[in-house]
Simulated scan of single mutants.
Amino acid sequence: MKADPAAQRRLLDLAEVDAELARVLHRRRTMPELAEITEAEKTVRAKSDALVAIQIQLDDLDREVAKQEKEIDAVRAREDRDRKLLAGGTLNSKQLTDMEHELATLERRQSVLEDDLLELMERREAIDMDGKHAGVELAKAQETLAEATGRRDENLADLDTNQARREAERAKLIPTLPADLLAFYERRRAQRGIGASLLRARRCGACRIEIDTREMSRIRETPADEVVECQECGAILVRTPESGL
């Protein structure tokens, strides 16, 4: 196809803008913060789950402690009642013997319950310390996530600004290009990723491959208003005094 050489040279400006837009898109997809955030989110979930598990243990222990304390209170109340009966002087000898036996049993039962309660309280204290440590670890993980998210958002803001500027430049360039040349360029860009490049010193600016002597001779003999393409990558080759023709 044919196109004014000046219009062909404007393709280089468009290709530069499109290359920058492609770089912006690439940076959006590959910025290190994205991987950091993914890992930080996993860590936060794990730390949060660990804290929840500890809290469940504490709740279970609290119920056990309350149950144990209730049993101890019941034993003490029974012991107090028996001692009052014993002190009342109304019991016969058999009743006194039975009462003394029951009081001894209650004392042993209370001692066992109190030992069990102490063990529960010690376990709870240890798990509570684990919970505090888990809370600190969760806070650190959340801080790491927030910091990575902040950096990502800053980078995205910069990319948004750059993209908006480049899209505005592209919008200004499009009307300056012939429709058929632009359509040809867009097809090449869709197929190859790069629509046009400068032919500089016998080398394609898109694929960086040096063009052989025979192909250079053909290009040299091609009229300036004829659009030529790189035989290797398909990009439109824009000829200027730098092309080495």
Rank of each mutant, 00 (worst) to 15 (best):
S48F: 00
S48V: 02
A50S: 09
V52I: 14
V52F: 08
A53C: 13
I54P: 10
Q55D: 15
Q55L: 11
Q57C: 05
L58C: 11
L58M: 14
D59C: 11
L61V: 05
D62S: 15
D62W: 07
D62G: 15
R63Y: 14
E64L: 13
E64D: 14
V65A: 13
V65I: 15
Q68I: 07
K70H: 15
E71T: 15
E71P: 06
I72F: 11
I72V: 14
D73H: 15
A74L: 15
A77R: 09
A77T: 12
A77S: 12
R78P: 04
R78G: 00
E79N: 03
E79M: 12
D80T: 13
D80A: 11
R81F: 06
D82C: 02
R83E: 02
R83I: 10
L85C: 01
L86P: 04
L86V: 02
A87G: 07
G88Y: 12
T90W: 07
T90P: 06
N92C: 03
K94S: 12
Q95H: 04
Q95D: 01
T97R: 15
T97Y: 13
D98T: 15
H101N: 14
H101K: 13
A104K: 11
E107V: 14
E107D: 04
Q110A: 13
Q110I: 00
V112Y: 07
D115R: 07
D116N: 07
L118K: 04
L118H: 08
E119Q: 12
E122K: 12
R123K: 09
R123Y: 09
E125L: 05
D130V: 08
D130S: 07
D130K: 10
G131H: 07
K132N: 07
H133A: 10
H133F: 05
A134W: 11
G135H: 06
G135W: 04
E137D: 15
E137W: 00
A139T: 10
A139N: 10
E147Y: 00
A148K: 02
T149A: 13
R152N: 04
D153W: 08
N155D: 09
N155T: 13
L156C: 02
A157Q: 10
A157G: 02
A157I: 08
D158K: 12
L159A: 02
D160S: 05
T161W: 03
N162K: 09
Q163N: 00
R165P: 00
E167S: 01
R170I: 03
L173M: 05
I174S: 01
I174A: 01
P178R: 05
P178E: 09
P178A: 05
A179W: 00
L181N: 03
L182I: 06
A183S: 08
A183K: 06
F184N: 11
F184I: 06
Y185G: 01
E186C: 03
